[in-house]
Design a protein around this nucleic acid. Structure first.
Lengths: 121, 121
DNA sequence: TAGTATACATAGATGGCCGATGGTTGTCAA
DNA sequence: TTGACAACCATCGGCCATCTATGTATACTA
């Protein structure tokens, strides 16, 4: 991997990432079809380089999503002649995404609730 | 464990929890000293029962925090005669909490950024 | 005095993510 | 034209956080 290093140097504990990866990947795909490497660079860009997804993380996830019918794959030759695997979110995938979003919102709100309730005491 | 079951039935993917547990525990302790079992019930209460921390999760974490000097412990006999282990956050623990909070805010904001940027496209 | 809730503790299994590694193809400068 | 580098896909072993299951002891209460 040769991702350009952005200016942001804040490191997020890896374990915080756990569980949100699928949400992020499906979110990316909900806008347009993308290929793996592109998701990594796009995710880094959109998150101000907070998320530096590893290939060893992404590809198994994509295969899992495909196995569960949440994304579909097709090989496409780009204008430059390079053949890539493009992933597209399915209807089932959009449902799963909605569910994940709800989960995320609930999780986020309750973490904040605990953190804030404590700082008030 | 015999925690009362609350009305909320939404289940959060366990893996989302990863990494936030220490933040939550330290947040609880930042308000007052508490004992283990109390943290579990308090966390459930303050999070509308979204977080149902298990004893098998909490106690190893507390021991780790103590080993790292982020919390201190003392045995105290409550009025009812029961002896409990009360955990108190240390100065070092407060610093760690501040760092964790910053991490959490950055993480939260960037997840939202990705999720929202996709839904706009 | 039996049952239930409180309270602390640990070992083993599970599952997600990462580091390491390897391969192929396209590009560009020397 | 060739060699280095970038783009791109892929897998495996291991780590680490959490859960499940289990064990223990004490206090309250019916």
């Amino acid at each position: 991997m040769y991702l350009r290093k952005g200016g942001c140097s804040m490191k997020i504990d890896k374990s915080l990432m756990s569980g949100s990866t699928t949400l992020l990947v499906l979110s990316l795909l909900s806008g347009e079809e993308m290929y793996g490497y592109q998701m990594i660079t796009e995710l880094a860009r959109r998150s101000n380089h907070i998320f530096d997804l590893k290939e060893g993380t992404l590809y198994p996830i994509l295969h899992g999503l495909e196995a569960n019918g949440l994304v579909s794959v097709r090989e496409r030759k780009s204008e430059e002649g390079r053949t890539r695997k493009y992933y597209r979110i399915t209807r089932k995938g959009r449902k799963a995404l909605d569910a994940r979003k709800e989960e995320w919102v609930a999780f986020r709100e309750q973490v904040d609730a605990v953190v804030n309730s404590a700082s008030l005491a």
